[in-house]
Amino acid sequence: MSALRRTSGWWQAPAALLVAALFIAPVVWMAAASLKPNARIHRDVDSLRSFLPEPFTLENYSAALARSHLGTTLVNTLVVVVVIAGLGVLVNGAAAFAFARLSFRGRDWLFGILVASIILPIEVIVIPLFMTVRTSAFAMDYLGERPWTLAALSLPFAAKAFNIFLLRQHFLSHPRALEEAALLDGAGWITVFWRIALPNAKPALVTVVLLDFVVHWNDFLWPLVVCQGQDTRTVQLGMGNFFTQPPISWGAILAYALLITAPLTLAFAVGQRWLAKSIATSGLRG
């Protein structure tokens, strides 16, 4: 029960609603503007009419679909996100399990370095990462440009120090009894990891997958650097399609923006409870 909870003045509800309205006003405006004729968007700005989808039309959405190659960008982004999250669960889960359960020389030292590297943002190494990835450009001839680019967009981000850290915390909190019993029955560590530890880590896996999904759905800088051809673009880069030739149709841009946000809003709605909780209580601190 926090301090503010008991100072219950009559003003609190109206004040909260006012703040809430200010926070969502831009989003409401964006939705309304996407649903009215393009020419009206700028004309309505000096009144509250701008927050109403009036006169109602879906023409911006059909323009957005016609111009954005949405199908291609959606498929590309989905492939990238699924590869990152799927491969990530296996690779990071295995490493996390080794750090949580096995004793080997240099373990704590290695884990310390890994945790320290969490602060390293990808933006720092985006140029040298591009140089490194470019050395495999010869493979483009065998794979084709689109598969090569999708691999370049996903493989570098499957292994992630933060996810290893989060999963290790979770494995540490598991009771050991079941695993010990399996070991006594002659199962190896790999079997214990695959059959017992990983299936029991579902809540943590949901968090990790959701984080990967949100972060990489929204990736902009790395795709900007790597994607060359039109058919290799991701949803965020797809926004650029609207600025290439005039006239710029803001209505279509806003419609596209809402279309590519919808899957994310859904993901958040399903998982934000787990997300905040597992980060706040992960004990990530100095």
Binding site: L90, A98, L102, R105, I125, P128, M131, P156, A159
Partner: peptide, 26 residues
Amino acid sequence: EWPAAVLLLAPAALLITLFVLVPAAA
């Protein structure tokens, strides 16, 4: 336990080496 540890750590170690350590050194 170290043989199992090596097996479990190898995939993550490989990816991190390739996509973090090599670029950082470069």
